Computed example of a mutant assay.
Amino acid sequence: MSSPTEFLDIVEQEITGAVQGVLVRPATGSRAGVLVLHGSYGPGTLDRCRLLARAGLMALGLRWYGGEGQPPGICEVPLETFSAGLDLLQTEGAGRLSALGLSKGAEAALWLSVLDQRTAAVVALSPPSVTWANLGAGTDGQSHPWRSSWTWQGEPLPFVPRDKTWEPKPREDGLVSLRGWYEHSRELYPDHYEAAAIPAENTKAELVLVAGGDDQTWPSLPAARTLRDRRLATGLPTVLIERPAAGHRPRLPGEEPASPSTYLCYGGTDADDAALGTAAWPHVLNALRGP
């Protein structure tokens, strides 16, 4: 059953300048702000921001690459970009600051919670447990050799390269699964994998991890379990919502099914992706709204 807050009137505002994106908030305002981070497919967070705003949250859908003055790809993106998003939410009156990210956006959100202790909660949808190499070009226009996806205070974070000899093999349906690329690269670079681990145990932010066992982009469910276990070992509770048959793109209640791809296989089905999002939704709201 939907809660009454899901029908709040909302206000939208385009954000330009040093911080780029869209700010969506309940017309009555909110003291809880959430940074909404897209994945490697690029900007497209407006509908998710609207959903969160109707649930009573101030949501900033941040554009963090591909915009004016930004790297054209996910290559050495300054994590300060996300801290600037928190700054904006704080300026707009948010007292509780959180982040919700999908895929590479989840990777960024997890690092943000480690490096910027203002982050009270993180919802990581289909997360990794390490920093992976760049996807696309940096500000110099170069995609190779491999570099880190992120920098902090001007220094690149340790990362795991991907096997440059790997070649995609289309499935029977003609789509390509990238999961094997990441799994093989982990085996190929075990020392890098250990060094690039996201130290989720070093943040006291509430963590809600959401992952499907049929994720064909990368092994997000094993990664989410790794993050959970690292935190539990230090006494930090973590919520993990999983569904074996769900894929890379969990769908929150009220969201339309993800657009089908003509090249990449994301795994899961619309029904399972929706079921995973539905199971996660109350935990998402609890974390983002706070006590």
Score class of each variant (00 low, 15 high):
122 V>W: 05
58 M>D: 07
241 I>Q: 06
271 A>H: 11
79 L>T: 06
127 P>R: 11
268 G>C: 04
266 Y>T: 07
253 P>A: 03
265 C>Y: 02
60 L>E: 06
52 L>P: 03
2 S>M: 02
195 A>L: 13
123 V>G: 03
279 A>P: 00
106 A>R: 07
221 L>V: 09
160 V>W: 08
98 S>F: 06
114 V>H: 09
140 D>W: 09
204 K>G: 14
43 P>C: 00
148 S>A: 15
170 P>M: 09
145 P>G: 11
250 P>N: 03
185 S>M: 07
116 D>F: 12
115 L>S: 02
165 T>I: 00
242 E>C: 00
174 G>T: 07
255 E>L: 15
192 H>F: 10
195 A>K: 14
287 A>G: 02
14 E>R: 14
16 T>L: 00
260 P>H: 11
22 V>H: 01
178 L>G: 00
114 V>G: 09
229 D>L: 11
140 D>Y: 09
106 A>V: 02
268 G>V: 04
248 H>S: 08
216 Q>N: 12
127 P>L: 08
69 G>C: 10
282 P>G: 04
65 Y>F: 15
278 T>F: 04
58 M>G: 07
119 T>Y: 00
217 T>D: 12
110 L>A: 13
258 A>P: 00
128 P>Q: 04
195 A>P: 08
227 L>Y: 03
78 P>R: 04
4 P>K: 05
264 L>N: 01
90 Q>R: 15
102 L>A: 11
134 N>D: 04
276 L>C: 09
110 L>K: 11
240 L>A: 12
180 G>F: 02
280 A>H: 05
243 R>Q: 14
289 R>L: 14
213 G>M: 09
97 L>P: 11
62 L>M: 10
146 W>M: 01
86 L>C: 03
222 P>F: 05
46 L>S: 08
107 E>C: 14
86 L>D: 06
146 W>G: 06
260 P>Q: 03
219 P>W: 04
197 A>C: 12
245 A>P: 01
134 N>T: 05
249 R>A: 08
175 L>P: 01
282 P>F: 04
221 L>R: 10
46 L>T: 14
44 G>H: 06
144 H>T: 15
42 G>I: 04
285 L>K: 04
251 R>L: 14
62 L>D: 04
214 D>G: 03
116 D>R: 04
116 D>G: 09
105 G>A: 06
